[in-house]
């Protein structure tokens, strides 16, 4: 077990966001977290990274409780985020953004290797390395954001809406790359609105509704689940269930 949520509650002031949530993610998996707007998906990501602290429950990473640890310590232990809407440092160069991904690591041959690995995975990023990140297209920014996260050599990659705002061709590319990253040994926990795409590459998925896990299981099964088909795969025009 790489990451586990045990009965996690979170609050923003009086607003109860996550309600007794349980997740468990095995090493080597791609796990998708599905759900509509404001259901607690992004809060889940922020809770993993330590930007939001649970009011109750435990977050366990690699056998140790991490819910009280500062964000930097979690990054050091091997959790890296690909943030919603990319969130690159807009006035820094592409290369500097990649460097920031490796902020807690030493410079040296390993760093150079990882840069080369990112360039091999994303040739466009190499072409643009001296460009100011804020001037890139959305798709290019997504590549830099993923490259930046890989520079931390994460064991767990937490991706928040990797397909958001991208053209369909780009979405396919991004998902291919996510699979490639996973095959090289990185566990992936992915929040995604695009349930169809997410379920096509994920091993398992959780469905979150108003802060509670309402469904979970193998991606294949969830794809056939009528409730999912209605609500997230757009096969019937039923009112939103979020």
């Amino acid at each position: 077990m790489l990451l586990e949520f045990k009965d996690v509650d979170t609050h923003y002031g009086d607003l109860h966001v996550l309600k007794k949530v349980n997740y468990s993610i095995e090493k080597g998996e791609i796990v998708a977290l599905l759900g509509g707007n404001a259901c607690g998906k992004s809060t889940t990501m922020k809770t993993i990274m330590g930007v939001v602290r649970p009011t109750r429950g435990q977050v366990i990473f690699d056998g140790q409780a991490i819910e009280k640890l500062p964000t930097a310590e979690r990054v050091r232990r091997g959790i890296a985020p690909v943030l919603e809407a990319r969130r690159l440092f807009p006035r820094m160069t592409v290369f500097e953004n990649l460097e920031m991904g490796a902020y807690l690591r030493k410079r040296g041959p390993e760093f150079d290797q990882d840069i080369e690995r990112v360039y091999a995975l994303f040739p466009r990023v190499k072409e643009r390395r001296d460009q100011i990140a804020g001037t890139l297209s959305g798709g290019e920014q997504q590549m830099v954001a993923m490259g930046r996260a890989l520079m931390a050599r994460p064991r767990l990659l937490c991706m928040d809406e990797p397909s958001m705002g991208l053209s369909p061709i780009f979405v396919e590319q991004v998902f291919d790359i996510i699979q490639a990253i996973n095959r090289s040994g990185t566990t992936i926990f992915m929040v995604e609105q695009n349930a169809n795409m997410a379920l096509s590459i994920a091993h398992r998925a959780y469905v979150l509704q108003t802060g509670q896990v309402v469904l979970s299981g193998a991606a294949e099964e969830l794809r056939r689940n009528p409730l999912i088909r209605e609500a997230y795969l757009g096969e019937m025009q039923v009112g939103a269930t979020t």
Binding site: T71, A72, V75, L88, F89, P90, M92, Y103, R148, A152
Partner: peptide, 23 residues
């Protein structure tokens, strides 16, 4: 410098910088 870059990154997006491990 590393810390100088962390300063710029924090100025541009403090939350993202924090999630890179910047204190």
């Amino acid at each position: 410098s590393r810390l100088g870059k962390a300063m710029r990154a924090t100025a541009q997006d403090a939350e993202a910088a924090r999630m890179m491990g910047v204190e």
